[in-house]
Design a protein around this nucleic acid. Structure first.
Lengths: 339, 339
DNA sequence: TTGAAAGCGCTACCAG
DNA sequence: CTGGTAGCGCTTTCAA
């Protein structure tokens, strides 16, 4: 009566076998009505909860999934996590958070957790594989993996992503439409794929409009705020600074705006700035940031639902799932300054 | 050779019993040297990983802890989570994320996960108990629980928190020191304890300085950005608006600044604004926000280490652990405007 | 220092 | 529709 009741206790009290209790509680539909409700009743009365370890051992599943990110303290992941958590919770799964800090040892650890039954599947948002696994080739495609936000090529893994190149092109076209011709770009950490795609989108839009791309207008960054400041400072040491800056993410855009203001330049009257990601608070700045918005929660939900498909061995879309982006035109972009 | 090796496979290969393998791998120190390294070697060679479900079932532990927050998409929790994750990871624990959205059903669910062996302990950051449990009284103090950031009174639970009242007092004193006499406060969701404490700190500082507190200067909020805007708008409908606003959190402070600027008021030349929490990007705004900074990662780490103590049945500090705050004086506060 | 064996709590197979 | 029971993979007595 004192310690936690087990299935056997319920069985005795209800006058049936453990097997029947198990069936009744798991809703297998194979239990006749009078028995069914009697069992349910006693289970509730005894405040019964099935032991997960025992169940997991028996069923060879953990009903948990692993969501692995580069840096857990990046707010960008919040909404994605929320989406993953919602979809997981709806399906009866728990979410384990993995944080790699770009440390290969930790990356490997999370893969090991898949093998040791800690989790039934993994959503990878790191854009890379631990070195040890890279050699495993096609064996990887057998693992219950879904790649989100980033891309891992060559293993036939399911992906949920956005059209980074197209979205960048659209953002730059917006600037061009405002009359800007000297448009610089602060890149992400090249040669990473996502950074490369965003850079390429910028280049494409510039070329399509017949605009010049001075080498110094492509400033190599790393998504960090202070880098945005520094690169902007560099741009303003050029004989001919740009009239607009397209940044590979919002943080660098904040850094750029910060630096411009420090130099007494007004955004957007003097210089236009566009970000990418539409992170939390982007719209709360003054002026609110013009940026490319990703449907983060939906990306999380979709990734989780794909993962459930993988775990359930359902058929998967052979191509990456591409989620739509929206260019949020807000307050940091405006017509090019005359003269 | 194909499917995952189990302890029995290692035992056969190494020519010992499963028991010895288990002892060797868990480092019990009861295995003689030649055997020990032979077992380790074969385990590595076979790429062995112990099955967690089996181990958990046997040991009656899950080596996971649950971190439960009100709203997972609030960036405030990021650093705390990081701290928890670090301390957990160091101790060999995984962290499960729980998101209640203030939904009592979900709150109860997470408590159930404690009982069903999903997790060995729980860090509660919701500041309240699910209704069903409130009646259980002192039985609660037997559960492996740690309360962080918030407070749950009357059950003798271990706490990690900050001195909300004292920190608020300090923030308001800073404003008073700058010559402000008309200082309004945007509160959190009263009557919640944390919101109340921050409000009380403001009142105390005002009273100690002999300043008036017009009823309309206490505007009841809910920590949301847009509420910050709305309440500020209300303040400026008063015959005598304040010269400074102390906000119960940073988001409302951002909202306040936004609204002030919309009205053509300069921060801090016309109005000073102080926030609370020092969330991500607070220092990246222009001007950067003056706010109360909490050692979030340390709070997370401390909460986790307390939880490990609880789980290990170690002695606990009878009083709440109070972590120090720092008033970060940045760019949104300045001397009161003359005239 | 090592091995044999029980059993953690549950599910699912096989009978009836 | 229900019961008996094997066994998931591991740890940990108890004996040797």
């Amino acid at each position: 009566m004192n310690s936690r009741p087990k299935i056997k206790d319920i069985a005795e009290r209800a006058g049936v076998s453990p097997a029947t209790v198990s069936r009744a509680l798991s809703g297998s539909g194979l239990v006749a009505e009078p028995t069914l409700s009697r069992i349910r009743e006693t289970a509730r009365a005894m405040n019964y909860r099935p032991n997960v370890s025992a169940r997991n051992l028996r069923t060879q599943r953990s009903m948990s999934v692993l969501m692995v990110v580069r840096d857990i303290s990046n707010p960008f992941y919040l909404e994605v996590m929320k989406g993953v958590e919602e979809a997981a919770s709806d399906a009866g799964y728990s979410v384990l958070m993995g944080n790699t800090q770009n440390n290969p040892r930790r990356e490997t650890e999370y893969f090991d957790m898949l093998r040791d039954g800690h989790a039934d599947g993994m959503i990878l948002m790191t854009g890379k594989l631990p070195p040890r696994l890279e050699s495993e080739g096609s064996a990887l495609s057998q693992l219950p993996l879904v790649v989100a936000l980033e891309t891992i090529e060559g293993y036939g893994l399911p992906h949920v992503q956005i059209d980074n190149r197209g979205a960048s092109r659209e953002a730059v076209e917006h600037l061009i439409g405002l009359g800007h011709r000297r448009i610089a770009h602060l890149t992400g950490p090249l040669p990473e794929l996502m950074a490369t795609l965003r850079r390429d989108g910028w280049r494409e839009a510039m070329q399509a409009a017949g605009l010049d791309i001075p080498a110094a207008y492509e400033q190599r960054g790393d998504y960090l705020l202070r880098t945005g400041q520094e690169l902007t400072a560099k741009l303003w040491e050029l004989p001919e600074p740009p009239t607009a800056i397209f940044c590979a993410n919002d943080e660098m855009a904040f850094g750029a705006i910060h630096e411009l203001r420090r130099r007494g330049l007004d955004v957007p009257a003097d210089v236009s700035v566009v970000g990418f990601d539409d992170i939390y608070l982007s719209q709360a700045l003054f002026p609110p940031l013009t940026t490319v918005s990703q449907p983060r929660a939906e990306i999380g939900r979709k990734a989780m639902s794909l993962l459930l498909d993988v775990i359930g061995e359902a058929d998967l879309p052979p191509d990456p799932v591409v989620m739509p982006t929206i260019l949020k035109i807000r307050g940091t972009t405006g017509p090019v300054r005359e003269n």
